[in-house]
Design a protein around this nucleic acid. Structure first.
Length: 664
DNA sequence: GTTTAAGACGTTTTT
DNA sequence: CGTCTTAAAC
């Protein structure tokens, strides 16, 4: 008996809407898939359908996602369904890198100054390169910060804007300056046989545009192109997708407007709409049945997101009815907010901590909760934070490793010089007399580096922090031993930033009984039985940086929507009436998003604890605006402009910076 | 080359 | 209030 499931069985498990999408025939399709509507299942079942029913070879399917984790999950499921591996399933970046490696070895990337050994620069390397350009040219880092210039260059590349075009478009000092740096930056990359993250996509696209033979080769190969999270594509990703889908236009794009939360990285949800105008014959499918949350949670999510005017929203529904309300907790201060949540968890959920997620807008908010959890001995883990490959000791060793294969790699050289000039000299002597096969073996290369440079001498066995570093180095050895070739190891590390590959065992879901804490951004794609959305305040969610622009408010609202739709059974909101930020304590207002939720769905718990403020006026809160987009805005603006006595005093006494105050 | 102190700054971060 | 960067001092 075969372990491989029959396609009919797979189709049987789908609802009619899902099945219609999976059975889409040739030509372009767009699938608007709401949160928790089973989009991964639809994508993977469709791939199985293409392979088993349509006889499409697995290697002729191009399946692209945004994270390595999502790609791994889909590959796994397709393997279960069909018994076949998908060689071209991955992230935009990893798939582009794969294509570039192949073409570089054919000499097709010479015009980009790249040979088959090209190095991939990560975000730190990019910054190092830019700083080095500043230094050489005597640019002042105070006038235009390297970080800002870096992001300008990055967005230009994502928009497929070259150095000349960028210069022509520049109309202010910063842009003119960035144009200069951009030009030198590109030259340096080419001279150093290197690409940055953005280049992986833009050079791949450029190659397809310039080289007809190469383009046709891949267009013929990839008979079907499937894209996940299409609302998060940027211009170069959109263009790549389009060009690869030709000539058959067998493009299957899955996405959800309401979950677009990466505009600041160039993602443009309008790409979903653009599909409909670029492909006249496109078929649209909608998945609105939700398998995750209770109806109350879905109604809350929908009532919030319905206030977004610039994109369509889905109406999620479920047959899981419940009369369980969503709860709001108000406390007087940020510290008490953490105490309150910690005590609720301790009392009600002590035995199911692993089902709990605590979500916040900014990472600094985690601190108060960590302290409160520790006091009550509630175990927790934080998702995000410093990544494995971003640690000093790992980056140090990686720079040595990279120098073994590309001596032109300036960020690695600079780093190695910083570790010690003598160490670097010894390394170079060793490199000259060591044969290629030793270098290509990851373990012996690393071993050789450690023996030559005496790098481990930097650390003290008695210092606990250093012991942790030594452990990390051991972990790097473990990762290295799983690769046949050092170059492959380096490429993997460059493309897998979150290091889940390094900690596979600990990454395997929550085996321990711990509360999971993370930012709202990190929570996308996950689900938890019990969710706490904390810091529901104007200034935090929506973030103070976003409150001036309606467009940005809408992105914050989508972020709120993403948070709400993570919850399966129970959802809590909390906010504090005053909060310490940047050393100042300031009064805060409940988030406008709370007022957008139907009151009937909510249970409000106010605690009139110590420090209760008299000026608290509940008439301003929790009133659903009649015509959301406009009244909500003016009402909130009115509130914001009121200067309370406390702030006024502080302002007059110069204790409070006016900008600080206006930020709220 | 390493340590220390003053100074600046403060959202999110799939690759 | 913290963290990180940079300059200045050992």
């Amino acid at each position: 008996m075969s372990l491989v499931l029959e396609i009919a069985n797979l189709l049987n498990e789908l609802n009619p809407e899902q099945r219609r999408a999976v059975l889409h025939q040739d030509g372009p399709a767009i699938v608007l898939a709401g949160a928790g509507s089973g989009k991964t299942r639809v994508l993977t079942t469709r791939v199985a359908y293409l392979i088993k029913e349509k006889q499409i070879p697995a290697s002729n399917i191009f399946l692209v996602t945004f994270t390595n984790k999502a790609a791994a999950e889909m590959k796994k499921r397709v393997l279960e369904y069909t018994g076949q591996n998908l060689p071209f399933a991955g992230t935009f970046h990893s798939l582009s890198a794969k294509i570039l490696r192949i073409e570089a070895s054919q000499g097709h990337l010479e015009k980009f100054g790249l040979n088959a050994n090209f190095t991939i620069y990560d975000s730190d390397d990019q910054l190092a390169l830019i700083k080095s350009i500043y230094k050489i040219n005597g640019y002042d880092p105070g006038t235009f910060k390297p970080q800002v210039v870096k992001s300008k260059i990055s967005s230009a590349k994502n928009e497929l804007i070259g150095t000349d075009e960028f210069k022509d478009m520049a109309h202010d000092g910063l842009q003119l300056f960035a144009a200069k740096v951009y030009k030198s930056y590109e030259k340096r990359l080419r001279d150093e046989n290197a690409v940055d993250f953005d280049d992986l996509l833009s050079i791949c696209y450029q190659l397809f545009v310039d080289n007809e033979a190469v383009r046709q080769k891949y267009q013929a190969k990839f008979q079907h192109v499937l894209v996940d999270e299409f609302q998060d594509t940027n211009k170069v990703q959109y263009s790549l997708t389009r060009i690869l889908a030709q000539p058959g236009d067998n493009l299957f794009a899955v996405g959800d407007f309401s979950q677009s939360i990466y505009a600041w990285r160039g993602a443009d949800y309008r790409n979903l709409e653009r599909l409909s105008s670029d492909f006249k014959n496109i078929k649209e499918y909608r998945l609105e049945r939700n398998y995750r949350s209770t109806q109350a949670i879905l109604d809350a999510a929908t009532s919030v997101i319905a206030n977004n005017m610039s994109h369509p929203v889905l109406e999620l529904w479920t047959d899981q009815s419940t009369d369980e309300k969503l709860e709001i907790y108000e406390t007087s201060t940020g510290e008490l907010e953490a105490e309150k949540i910690a005590s609720i968890i301790k009392e009600k959920y002590f035995d199911q901590l692993k089902n709990i997620a605590l979500l916040y807008r900014t990472n600094v908010q985690s601190r108060a909760f960590e302290e409160a959890f520790m006091r009550r001995q509630l175990p927790y883990k934080i998702v995000g934070g410093t990544k494995f490959y971003e640690r000093t000791e790992i980056k140090d060793l990686l720079s040595y490793l990279r120098l073994c294969f590309n001596q032109l790699d300036s960020p690695s050289r600079a780093r190695a010089e910083k570790i010690g000039k003598r160490r670097l000299e010894k390394l170079e002597v060793w490199l000259a007399k060591t044969d290629r096969s030793t270098l290509e073996n990851p373990s012996s290369c690393l071993q050789g580096i450690l023996e030559t440079t005496l790098y481990l001498d930097k650390y003290d066995q008695k210092d606990p922090e250093d012991v942790a570093r030594l452990d990390n180095i051991q972990e790097l050895f473990n990762v290295a031993s799983r690769f046949e070739n050092t170059l492959l190891l380096l490429e993997n590390i460059a493309l897998v930033q979150d290091g889940y590959l390094a900690n596979e065992s600990s990454f395997n879901q929550n085996e321990g009984n711990e509360i999971t804490m993370m930012s709202l951004h990190s929570a996308k794609g996950l689900e938890f039985s019990i969710v706490f959305m904390v810091g529901m305040e104007e200034g935090l969610l929506p973030h103070s940086r976003a409150i001036m622009e309606e467009k940005e408010i809408e992105e914050e609202r989508r972020l709120c929507y993403v948070g709400i739709t993570r919850a399966k059974d129970k959802l809590y909101f909390s906010y504090a009436r005053s909060r310490f930020t940047y050393g100042y304590s300031s009064n805060s207002l409940p988030s406008r998003f709370l007022s957008e939720i139907d009151q009937k769905l909510l249970k409000i718990n106010r605690s009139f604890d110590q420090g209760s403020v008299n000026s608290y006026q509940d008439k301003y809160y929790y009133k659903k605006p009649k015509t959301p987009a406009t009244t909500a805005k003016t009402k909130d603006q009115k509130i914001r402009l009121v200067v309370d006595e406390e702030s006024l005093d502080a302002l007059l006494n110069d204790e409070l910076d006016i900008r600080e105050f206006l930020r709220k």
